[in-house]
Design a protein around this nucleic acid. Sequence first.
DNA 1: AATCCCCCGTGATTATTATAACAAATGATT
DNA 2: AATCATTTGTTATAATAATCACGGGGGATT
Lengths: 225, 225
Amino acid sequence: MNSCAFRGQAIFKEAGIMKIAEPTVERLVLYYRLLSQLHNEERRVVSSQEIGEMLGLKASQVRKDLSYFGEIGKRGVGYHVDRLYQHISNILSPNRVWKIALVGVGRLGEALLGHKALRSDKFKLEALFDNDPSKVGQVICGIPCYDSEEMTEIIRRKEIEVLILTVPAGAAQISADRAVAAGTVKGVLTFATTAISVPEDVLVYRVDISVELEKLLFFLKGSVA
Amino acid sequence: MNSCAFRGQAIFKEAGIMKIAEPTVERLVLYYRLLSQLHNEERRVVSSQEIGEMLGLKASQVRKDLSYFGEIGKRGVGYHVDRLYQHISNILSPNRVWKIALVGVGRLGEALLGHKALRSDKFKLEALFDNDPSKVGQVICGIPCYDSEEMTEIIRRKEIEVLILTVPAGAAQISADRAVAAGTVKGVLTFATTAISVPEDVLVYRVDISVELEKLLFFLKGSVA
DNA sequence: AATCCCCCGTGATTATTATAACAAATGATT
DNA sequence: AATCATTTGTTATAATAATCACGGGGGATT
């Protein structure tokens, strides 16, 4: 592990920091959840084989993912649950608490406000934005809701770094523009069904429910025939 | 096009039907949306280059995706908008209207009920399920809500083929089991943060909001440093 | 009609991701 | 202590997906 002439799938960036592939990070989150559960069950040790079975992955995939971050397992034994749990927790933990804002307090936005995903100590939800007068000025789920018009100013003042976009397709680009104009936004998670264009140093992740449904139906057509 | 000795990335299945890769299908949906928009703008012709720019893809990617389904463009000119729109529409159209049910009428479930994604003539939402007595027996957004206990029977009777799961993690597996027990379910779109296990002929797609957020934060940590 | 610039379709190439295979480490058992 | 059954970490290989590169059709212009 960690020679400079590393030639595997994880690559060293110029700065010397390892670049982890997105599918690996995605699985790390799954491992983390599973480990949390095993931890609660007071399980002591688990093998890559078992992890794979529980998550529907090959054992070799599991081992490869986990090995990117050092030799954390024990040969002939497996992975010590608490140690691995702690280890993955460290990998996934941000180096600070991110300040985030949610734009679009419609049904989906409100659903997210109550969703487990937004209950994390990795970030702090500092502001909501909407253009519905009945919502602006309110405190919803403990978070103040501001007028979308004031977005740039408030995001800048509060130094919001991450944006969750739950607005209709037509409002996605303008919302992104206003937010990015503040200069503090580094990442966006959008649920809108439109592509949004942002400066290239802003990271965008998209969750597109329609696309997932369409894919499901497409492959159903093929498999059921 | 369409020799039997085809050796490209799209592969013929035994039955002679072409197998399209998932990333391609995902992009087809994006092309479809874009074409719909161009159609409304009465645009006549569009090139792979332009499509790529609008969606953030390489022109060669666009051409390759579209070429899987025959020579639909015109060399030296581009793609005829209406023709391509119709063509992609045909590819994505199911050969019948799927009957679907939504399990878990909480905030997320209700958000989906109002969401554009569920407004499609490709499927018909026939039933809701929940175990909250205040919801069971109601008609919500025009769809009757039944008790989760009766799921197997009702799904069988109504011949529901696709399931949308918006239940808490703890209820995901039991819900899937009850639904699958009916014997009619072919596909599941789950929003639960647990892996569900189903017979292997049932297709499962997962939308995991927490995972997307975690990924975003992980890569932000790396890029902002 | 000859020339030019466009732009598609597709084979070749490269990049990315997943899987297989195996040496080395570990603890149990004899 | 020697053997055995495990199970990791890692390299090698395979599978998948994206990109390049180019042949050739197509229309506009001279």
